[in-house]
Write a protein that binds this DNA or RNA. Structure first.
Lengths: 193, 193
DNA sequence: TGAGTTATGGACTAATTGGTTCCGAAGCTA
DNA sequence: TAGCTTCGGAACCAATTAGTCCATAACTCA
């Protein structure tokens, strides 16, 4: 028995994610967010408390969307070879760049920025990265070339792949020549083969 | 025939580098810089024009210092195996973290941040990263395991190593568990062997 | 048709941002 | 000593920052 919200919070969070994805946490100003989300200050603060709380919601949304999609790919039984899954993941990241998406990975950008000085944000970011790492590790289980690896070694390789992924997506933001990104991906393929 | 500068600009730039290294370009405020450099607004603007110009000087200084040190290591004939040089480079990055230096790499942080929207900054950053890439490539020339590689393939592996490096140093900033960083480095060693 | 409740939009605030412009004093050279 | 420049420091500036407040609009339920 009150005035209903005139917007869908989930849609608003998704729009906010686009803004943060492009500009990063500190690079996204309130006007940027208001503009991208199509609402006014009053509504935003009523619905999302403050910028940081909104960002935490956005991070959760990003994990549901992008991170889970990555993990789904890495654990997709429809692609029998784990190495192929991993390579597809990297290839997709490269394709995003050539398709004009230079935003990289929201998590990776956050990891590099000052927002990591915030404990709550840091916790969510590291959790997301860990999920990816576990995805890589899971994929390696389905890779004949890595069957002999001990659990510890397999996790270690997964950690390396995560660093590779963070590096690739960070460089994607950095207007690095496409060729270098392509080479990275190609070499990952060679390494896994 | 005028009053000489009471501070050494090179020292001031080095101090500014520490501030930018810790906080990043946009994270470093004027008061932060003034404080870290031990000068007042008037002196800073007289000597360095503005924040961005100072940052460009700092980037150049960082390249002379950190990037050149890395390239020197990667091309050090005293370490006969190129793979060893590369692994030492990664090990050093890991050691920095366990020694309490969580600042990562100034270049990598800049690459992830909004300062990359500035053309001049972007140019210097990509140039620095390219120098590292060339260093990796040079080291691979001295690696028996990579002797059979064509020039193109060797460059591709170097690009992968650069992405690995950027990822590692980005994650170093991100309070990722030390073990994951250590695993990454260990796996790089296994991959190169 | 009210009463109650919540959302909206925009004005407003306080702090901070990078940057400028004074100043008198100090330090150098010719 | 005259002329020049830099010094420290504060005052100042316009723009931008995140965040608050409140009158009003819009809804539900009795």
């Amino acid at each position: 028995m009150a005035r209903p919200r005139s917007f869908d919070t989930d849609v608003a969070i998704d729009k906010a994610m686009q803004v943060f994805w492009t500009h990063g946490y500190e690079g996204a100003s309130l006007p940027d967010l208001l503009d991208g989300m199509g609402l006014t200050r009053g509504s935003l603060y009523k619905a999302f408390t403050d910028k940081k709380t909104l960002f935490l919601k956005v991070l959760a949304h990003y994990e549901e969307l992008a991170v889970n999609a990555g993990v789904a790919l890495l654990t997709d039984p429809a692609i029998p070879s784990g190495a192929d899954r991993i390579l597809t993941m990297f290839t997709n990241s490269y394709k995003a760049v050539t398709d004009g998406d230079q935003r990289g990975c929201l998590l990776c950008t956050a990891a590099a920025g000052p927002s990591m000085y915030d404990d709550e944000i840091a916790a969510v970011v590291t959790q997301g990265l860990s999920a990816l790492r576990d995805g890589f590790s899971h994929a390696l289980l389905a890779s004949p070339q890595h069957e002999g690896l001990s659990d510890a070694d397999r996790h270690a390789v997964a950690d390396m792949l995560l660093a590779q992924y963070v590096g690739l997506r960070t460089m994607a933001r950095a207007r690095i020549p496409d060729e270098m990104l392509h080479n990275s991906v190609r070499s990952v393929g060679l390494m896994l083969a």
